[in-house]
């Protein structure tokens, strides 16, 4: 890639290896780029290394005794290795953690406001930011006074995204926004995410197991397995890729297969055409 192309990426991950507790290898070789203003999907099954990759970007790894042992991560022209989560938020990168993680005892409104913690805003500025978020999430406005712990899973996912957006991020990391939600709600949440991307210009890297909906709402996708990138391409090409279809939809004469085997076979037969 040329110099100019590099500067168009808000995030560049180069050949990272991540190890937990000094012994558990979670990610062995992941490289990916997120162009400014785009939505990139990181796809793969349980334990593939999606969450670990996101956490190494947001530097939340340290609190789980994980460490990036090889490679480099550059966010907005800055190496993230020496930074902490608070620095990352100040630089405009916020992660929405897997499982939503709302503050259960705080009200919906307090949850959303807490996202602006790092910004120095006056009471009236917070109010107008809050209204801006409610415009994207009208459901949250209805439930603003409820304790977040008593809201539904979909509402909690909305709280988590709205809370992250209150920091006015340049980039969002979303970890499995579809987890445990009804298909209709998943659709609704992805629509809002796409809207945020278009109107607020926020770049998004999202980790998903729900390949179909993730690719339909992204520009580019990476498929990772056992800590390595197996395949990448534009969302459209991945959606139409036979190998992706076969693996993720489980349509195959010989039953479900490991994605690695699918790739090996196609390499043998006619080479890897991506």
């Amino acid at each position: 890639m040329s110099e100019q192309n590099n500067s168009e990426n808000i995030l560049e991950i180069k050949n990272i290896e991540v190890v937990y507790d000094d012994v558990i290898l979670a990610v062995s070789d992941v490289s990916l780029d997120v162009p400014k203003g785009s939505i990139v999907a990181l796809l793969g099954g349980n334990g593939a290394g999606k969450s670990t990759t996101l956490k190494s970007v947001s530097t939340m790894l340290a609190s789980e005794r994980g460490k990036v042992t090889k490679g480099s991560i550059t966010y907005d022209g800055e190496r993230v290795e020496k930074l902490n989560p608070s620095d990352m938020v100040n630089l405009g990168l916020v992660q929405v953690l897997e499982g939503r993680r709302c503050f259960g005892h705080l009200t919906v409104e307090e949850n959303v406001i807490s996202g602006a913690y790092t910004r120095k805003l006056s009471k009236s500025e917070i109010k107008s930011e809050l209204e801006r978020m409610y415009a994207y999430f009208p459901r949250l406005k209805e439930r603003r006074k409820s304790q977040a712990g008593f809201t539904s899973g979909g509402e909690q996912q909305m709280i988590a995204v709205a809370r992250a957006m209150m920091a006015k991020p340049k980039m969002l990391l979303l970890d499995e926004p579809s987890m445990g939600l009804a298909p209709q709600l998943v659709e609704e949440i992805f629509n809002i995410v796409k809207e945020l991307n278009e109107k607020e210009g926020v770049s998004i890297l999202l980790a998903e197991q729900n390949t179909n909906i993730a690719l339909r709402n992204s520009d580019y996708g990476y498929i990772i397995e056992t800590g390595q990138v197996m395949l990448d391409g534009s969302a459209k090409s991945l959606l139409n890729d036979d190998k992706v279809k076969e693996f993720y939809l489980g349509i195959s004469s010989e039953g479900r297969k490991n994605f690695r085997d699918v790739l090996k076979e196609s390499k043998k037969n006619k080479g890897l055409a991506t």
Partner: peptide, 19 residues
């Protein structure tokens, strides 16, 4: 507010930049 957030979920609090 930050304090109550940390009490509820330190991990989530740290993810939105509460030191």
């Amino acid at each position: 507010l930050g304090l109550r957030a940390v009490a509820d979920d330190p991990g989530a609090a740290s993810s939105i930049g509460i030191p």
